[in-house]
Structure formats: C-alpha cells, structure tokens
C-alpha cells in the first residue's frame, strides 16, 4: 500500500495552548510542596463565550487536604489552536481591565489572544493577579492548619 500521508504530518507545528496551562498547574504543586495544587479539566459542555471552540478547559486551584477547589479561569480554542479565548474569574478580569494589557477584550468577560506570544504574558498576568495570590496564600495557610 502506498503511504499518501506527507512527511512530518504527526509533528506538531504549534504547541497546544493547554500544554502551557498544564505546565503551570504542575509548577504550583512543586512550589507549595503539593499543599496547594492546580488541575486542568476538559469540559464536556460547549462554551457559549466562544462559539466554535473545539476544546474547552477549566483551570482549578485545589487544596487537597481541604477538599477545596477554585475555578480561576477557562480556556477555549478551535482545532487550529488559535485564537485562544480565556474567561478569567470576574475579579481577575477587573484587574486585567485596569492593567493596560495589549490584548483584545471580548464579550462575556473574555479575552482573545491570537498567538503564543500573547498567551504567555496573559497567563502570567492571571496567575500573578492579586486574586490568584490571595487564594493560593489563603489555601496554603489553611491547609497547614487542617
């Protein structure tokens, strides 16, 4: 049988956006000695805030000993991977609104980025937001007392 597939078809040319958030999720556990971790879950339901999204993920901060999770943001992207739409927690969105980011704010409290170069700093802003810090720090403190 003749192989009609082109050379290199299985080699990804773009890193999947979910890989970045999974890496960050893993890093949180390392920083806190797994007192507080993060988890990325794929959502089965569609995202109304980005029609046509093939992949939708939720990013949770988790305190295993407290059996607690907080949804920090959702991320959706099409089969082509970009544009990526992120729907952060409302309080984080308010912080981002005031932060003069070079990003495109969409409807329903979403932010759209067209490339990896835009995605990375946006993720940094979300993870570095006052709300993210507050939640992680609070969970670390409470987990130690649990």
């Amino acid at each position: 049988m003749t192989d009609l597939w082109p050379e290199g078809i299985a080699e990804p040319v773009t890193t999947s956006p979910v890989r970045f958030i999974r890496e960050q999720a893993a890093l949180l556990g390392q920083k806190t000695g797994n007192t507080v971790t993060a988890k990325v879950s794929r959502s089965e339901e569609g995202a109304y805030w980005q029609s046509g999204a093939a992949f939708i993920y939720r990013f949770y901060i988790i305190a295993p000993t407290l059996d607690y999770r907080f949804q920090l943001f959702q991320l959706a992207f099409p089969i082509e991977m970009y544009p990526v739409t992120i729907k952060p927690d409302d309080d984080i969105m308010e912080e981002l609104n005031n932060a003069n980011l070079n990003t495109e704010f969409g409807p329903y409290g979403t932010i759209r980025v067209d490339s990896e170069e835009q995605l990375i700093p946006l993720l940094a802003s979300i993870l570095g937001s006052a709300k993210s810090r507050k939640i992680v720090q609070s969970l670390v403190a409470q987990s130690k007392e649990a």
């Binding site: 407290l66 059996d67 607690y68 999770r69 907080f70 949804q71 927690d89 409302d90 309080d91 709300k131």
Partner: peptide, 14 residues
C-alpha cells in the same frame, strides 16, 4: 459548612 468549590459568584458548601 466548609466550602468545597467556588467561583467568584458561587460558593458550594458541604
């Protein structure tokens, strides 16, 4: 009455 899942508009307590 511990919170187990939260978003900024929802608190789910056990």
């Amino acid at each position: 009455l511990r919170p187990i899942l939260e978003t900024n508009r929802l608190t789910v307590r056990h």
